[in-house]
Nucleic acid binder design. Structure first.
Length: 804
DNA sequence: AGCACGCCGACT
DNA sequence: GTCGGCGTGCTC
């Protein structure tokens, strides 16, 4: 006999970050289940909030009177057992609120909205009733009610003439469609119906004729279109009992109108087959192994994914595939839908809230067996998972950069263990963390070293921009790149140009020798701080003046580095007036669908050159691109981030892979100020393994990931001194519990020390094994609660993507 | 988060 | 003398 429910309420604070006991009204005892959303009274004054039932018990834990659950929001649990458990684990490992974790697992529309209102109880003065309440029974509370009005209302409330009521609004709406079903069953029935009509009822005769021809249930909209009859005629028909009008649920399907061609599995190469077999075997055996598929660009990773998923479906399981948001192009989606048709649900940011909700419900009702989506799709309510796949596993966007700061890779591995199914991480350029785990045997390494079409990897030429700039002071284009572009124009072949925008203007580089100012202690580039007119290291806090002369070659051309796409487009148009250029960056893709439209235009050869930022490096596949140019390879290298080399290598390798995908040979030209930098050298040779070995040595020397874990603790406050002081106090509390193997960096101010009038200070704890650290950090969060009331904000980020 | 309780300055 | 400021504690 379950009588009590434990409920986690929608109040994201540390003090309320635990289940509360509630009594279950008799009417709900049979239907209530863990994972359901409920509305409960919480706190004084009868305030209503939404909550999640986390457990049902026969005994109450709380020693006192319990309140009872108001209403059930769901008929079936919003979170199944797996997701409920996962949410708890996530809250613990990411230092975030349980309720926030549960909310992020669900479509946005399932998040409750709250309203507070004043309701008239007794008799109130006529003037107030008309002027304030506008003759309504309730007045919605809002910030813009005047102080005077509030005072009046408060007085009435105390006198018992008003009460405050709370509304918990569920925004999740199911879209419905009116359907027409013919009731009349046979010729005789139709004849009888016609006979009863007056001779001049022309429209109704038409309706009867239509119904006789169409006994099947059709949408009213369609019937109206086909008959050209008005809705009134159908309503009349329903009244006479000829037909029935009913409401049917419909899904908002974003790809409803696009025709997707069915595709067949492709013949696999020997390497692909080995990879497919390994993962499929694990899936069948219920093994939760993690595999790392390292496949060069164009090696057919996607086909491997598709066939593994097909095998999972064939065994009655479901499959989840994660793709970075920018790679989730219609091309990609259509490829999966082409193979699995209606069994596919897609979840990404381009969908409307309603569409996301519908896709989610299709999964939850087991109508979709394959899910493709970006980061948050890792929470898709698929049951009986047979495999989880994560494409481009190195992408930093898999880690959410706001609370809850989860990494989709960790979540995927957790779900693999829960479901006893394998996880497949795929990339041409795996993250060092994953590749190192494969080295140690934690993951199983699978490799696709060759391109599927047998084409060699494109030839990559490095252009030293220091030399080019000596000839042409301000140009962004070397003569070599320009000549190559002209060549493509003549041959009517397409080119892709990438402008690397990352790290725009935040570091200082010498235009003559490529020298970048580095921290003497940390081997990390110094960041320009315009507020203090200084160069600073974000790791150790080292500070020095902005250089006027290059310390390396004594040139005066040492300055901020960075260029915008618009400027480059203009320059290119002047250099190549006959070229048709398409620009793709945050500005031109802001509107919904703009991204797709630009790619579609380029695909249908409406332009010769596609000029864009990082977003063009991912997943686009245009057979006629024979030239890829990188205008500035270096910008990311200047970032104060130990992953700068890794990111640069990954980006260059990926963009290079865009050239020569079909049977035409591709060429890549990379312009750089640092042609001898190892990241660029290895990218030129497309040598991931070489890069991996070299970078691992550097990480080892610097005590960075994957040799060390890192936790970031950040404090912010309006007063810089207060923020710094608190950060030092916290650091001093952590130090005693750490072993001498751990390293604390900082406290240092953040690169943009002041954001929204707040100052940020942080420390980074690097460690291999500190069993007491997690509990200590939780304790710090708890004990600093009173401080958060005084304008402090404390953030803990396990394995941050950037330390900046 | 948001509400109530509780203790100190400017008003009827 | 009271109204109301916001600092503090609690919510099953």
């Amino acid at each position: 006999m379950t009588k009590f429910a434990q409920v986690v309420v929608d109040v994201p604070t540390l003090q309320t970050n635990r289940p509360y006991d509630y009594a279950i009204p008799a009417a709900l005892t049979d239907t209530i289940l863990p994972g359901m959303r409920v509305v409960v009274p919480f706190g004084k004054g009868g305030r209503r909030v939404q909550g999640f039932v986390t457990a049902l018990t026969t005994q109450q834990h709380y020693d006192g009177d319990l309140k009872a659950i108001d209403t059930l929001v769901d008929l079936r649990p919003a979170l199944n057992t797996e997701l409920l458990q996962l949410s708890k684990w996530m809250a613990d490992t990411t230092y975030s609120f349980w309720i926030s974790c549960m909310q992020t697992m669900l479509p946005n529309v399932m998040r409750a909205k709250y309203e507070k209102a004043f309701r008239i109880q007794g008799t109130i003065p006529e003037q107030i009733r008309t002027e304030i309440f506008h003759n309504q029974a309730e007045l919605l509370y809002s910030e813009d009610l005047s102080d005077q009005t509030l005072r009046t209302l408060s007085k009435l409330q105390q006198a018992g003439q008003l009460e405050t009521v709370y509304h918990v609004k569920n925004r999740a709406r199911v879209k419905t469609q009116t359907m027409v079903t013919t009731v009349l069953k046979n010729r005789a029935a139709f004849a009888a119906a016609s006979a009863a009509l007056r001779k001049n009822a022309a429209k109704q005769f038409e309706l009867l004729a239509y119904l006789e021809r169409h006994p099947e249930t059709v949408p009213l909209k369609q019937a109206e279109d086909e008959t050209k009859l008005s809705r009134a005629i159908f309503t009349a028909g329903a009244k006479k009992g000829w037909l029935e009008l009913s409401q049917q649920e419909v899904y908002r399907d974003p790809t409803r109108d696009t025709q997707i061609e069915q595709t067949q599995p492709l013949q696999l190469t020997a390497d692909q087959k080995t990879a497919v077999d390994a993962v499929v075997a694990a899936s069948k055996n219920g093994s939760d192994r993690t595999f790392l598929l390292e496949g060069v660009t164009g090696s057919g990773k996607t086909e491997v994914y598709l066939q593994i998923m097909a095998a999972a479906l064939a065994h009655g399981k479901t499959a989840l595939m994660l793709v970075p948001e920018i790679a989730l192009t219609p091309q990609m989606v259509n490829r999966v839908k082409g193979r699995f048709g209606d069994l596919v649900a897609v979840l990404h940011s381009g969908l409307s809230e309603g569409e996301k909700y519908d896709e989610w419900r299709r999964i939850e009702r087991h109508e979709a067996k394959v899910v493709v989506g970006a980061r948050s799709a890792v929470f898709a309510p698929l049951e009986n998972l047979g495999v989880l796949i994560m494409d481009e596993e190195h992408e930093s966007s898999y880690k959410q950069d706001e609370s809850p700061r989860y990494h989709a890779r960790d979540v995927a591995i957790w779900r693999g263990q829960y479901n006893h199914c394998p996880v497949l991480l795929g990339s041409a350029t795996p993250s060092l963390e994953s590749r190192a785990r494969a080295q140690k045997g934690v993951y199983q390494l699978l490799r696709l070293p060759e391109r599927i079409n047998g084409q060699p990897l494109p030839q990559v030429t490095l252009i030293d921009m220091k030399a080019a700039l000596r000839k042409n002071k301000n140009g962004n284009f070397s003569p070599q790149l320009l000549t190559a572009l002209q060549g493509r124009l003549i041959k009517h072949e397409q080119s892709v140009l990438m402008l690397n925008r990352r790290g725009f203007s935040s570091f200082v580089m010498c235009r003559d020798c490529g020298f970048v100012l580095k921290c003497p202690n940390c081997d990390i580039s110094l960041t320009l701080h315009m507020d203090t007119h200084s160069m600073r290291c974000h790791y150790c806090g080292h500070e020095e003046p902005i250089p006027q002369i290059c310390p390396n070659c004594h040139s005066h051309k040492i300055r901020y580095y960075g260029t915008g796409t618009e400027k480059v487009e203009k320059e290119l148009q002047e250099l190549l007036p006959e070229a048709r250029i398409l620009r793709m960056d945050v500005d031109t893709t802001r509107k919904k669908g703009a991204h797709e439209r630009i790619l579609q235009q380029f695909g249908s050869k409406e332009a010769d050159i596609l000029l864009g930022t990082q977003m063009i490096a991912k997943g686009l596949d245009f057979p006629d691109v024979t030239l890829v140019g990188v205008i500035n390879a270096d910008t990311a290298l200047g970032l104060p981030d130990f992953r700068a080399s890794e990111r640069t290598f990954q980006l260059l390798t990926q963009v290079s892979g865009r050239a020569g995908r079909a049977n035409k040979e591709g060429k890549v030209i990379i312009q750089t100020f640092n042609p001898e930098h190892y990241a660029i050298q290895f990218a030129q040779r497309q040598d991931y393994e070489g890069f991996y070995r070299h970078e691992m040595q550097i990480r080892h020397r610097g005590n960075y990931s994957p040799y060390y874990y890192s936790d970031l603790v950040q404090v912010s406050h309006e007063d810089e001194g207060q923020a710094a002081k608190m950060m030092f106090e916290i650091a001093n509390r952590i130090k005693p519990i750490l072993s001498d193997q751990a390293i604390i960096l900082g406290p240092t101010p953040r690169s943009i020390a002041r954001i929204n009038k707040k100052y940020y200070y942080q420390i980074v704890i690097k460690y291999k094994h500190e069993p007491r650290l997690h509990a200590k950090l939780e304790e710090i969060l708890e004990t600093t609660q009173t401080e958060t009331r005084h304008g402090f904000q404390i953030v803990i980020d396990h394995e941050p993507q950037q330390f900046t």
